[in-house]
């Protein structure tokens, strides 16, 4: 497989990137891990005349703890680094688990969180995890900075609110409160190098070890044109005492939020059944992790 010809740029600062983006805009593509872009270029889906590498931009691939309140994750942080980070494993479990399930080891060593979000595939692994963690996306262009909640970022398959001259710089995530547990489940025909048929991320917060649910977030992927939050199921759960039957019922409410399609990975009917049982299981796992919460 051969790559088409392009001009290659390797800016050394964020300002240079933004300048290049403002000059080249739609004719340029940003290269981070390359595990999506270079495939799309080889398959002739993308044919940018300019490729701007983010590799030499300092600080873009760092996981920076913000005291105890949260974390800032640079957009070119790799899935492998997220999956191995103790901070992410301890406090932002859905993201650590989703990162460890993306592609295969060689892909995880290159693929970046920014790339996974910006490509906006409905089945992307990291999107539901970022959604339950309510990540704030820091977006920059030459003359404008803005912050956008990840829930408002996706528009449709492959489409986001990003303008061609904008760069996703980092994600800011607040540390979930005490007695919070998280989970991520992915269903596919095999365990590696798989694009999900359905994926679910959950974040569940209890008032105390034996208290009711005070907050819960459920996000589903591959079930609609964009990843979606199952708000109805969340509302149903808040204030309730956790139980097996409660989680089961929440699963069936979760199905109502989705509009899955039938494709070669699975039928609509099968996906709906799987949304129900995966949501149920993801809630159970998040609940058990919430019980194990440690300072």
């Amino acid at each position: 497989m051969l790559l088409p010809k392009f001009d290659y740029h390797e800016p050394r600062t964020l300002e240079e990137v933004l300048l290049l983006l403002s000059e080249l805009g739609g004719n340029a593509k940003l290269l981070a891990g390359g595990t999506d872009l270079l495939v799309r270029m080889k398959l002739n889906v993308d044919r940018p005349s300019h490729v701007i590498s983010l590799e030499k931009v300092p600080g873009l691939n760092e996981i920076i703890p913000q005291d105890r309140h949260g974390v800032t994750i640079g957009s070119t942080t790799t899935a492998a680094n997220l999956a191995e980070s103790e901070l992410i494993i301890d406090r932002f479990a859905p993201l650590a688990i989703a990162s460890s399930r993306l592609g295969a080891p060689m892909i995880r060593n290159r693929a970046t969180i920014g790339g996974n979000l910006v490509n906006a595939r409905p089945a992307a692994d990291l999107s539901p995890a970022c959604m339950v963690l309510s990540a704030n996306l820091k977006i920059k262009s030459l003359n404008k900075d803005r912050e956008v909640l990840v829930n408002d970022f996706f528009v449709g398959p492959g489409q986001t609110i990003l303008d061609p001259n904008e760069l996703l710089v980092s994600l800011k995530i607040e540390t979930p409160p005490p007695w919070t547990g998280g989970s991520y489940l992915k269903l596919g025909a095999r365990k590696a190098l798989e694009i999900s048929m359905v994926n679910v991320a959950c974040l569940l917060t209890l008032q105390s070890a034996d208290g009711p649910i005070v907050d819960v977030r459920i996000a589903l992927g591959a079930v609609a044109p964009t990843p979606v939050r199952a708000f109805a199921a969340e509302e149903f759960l808040i204030g309730q005492k956790p139980s097996e039957s409660l989680f089961k019922e929440a699963g069936s409410i979760g199905v109502g939020m989705c509009s899955p399609i039938t494709d070669h990975r699975g039928t609509m009917e099968y996906r709906c059944m799987m949304i129900e049982s995966l949501t149920h299981r993801a809630l159970q796992q998040a609940y058990h992790r919430a019980l194990e919460w440690k300072l």
């Binding site: 290269l31 390359g34 595990t35 270079l38 590799e55 060689m106 060593n109 290159r110």
Partner: peptide, 18 residues
């Protein structure tokens, strides 16, 4: 697969320039 900076990577998805 090759090892780059201690990690296994797909050399078909990395530019030589990188």
């Amino acid at each position: 697969t090759v090892i780059m900076e201690g990690r296994a990577v797909n050399s078909c998805l990395i530019l030589a320039i990188q």
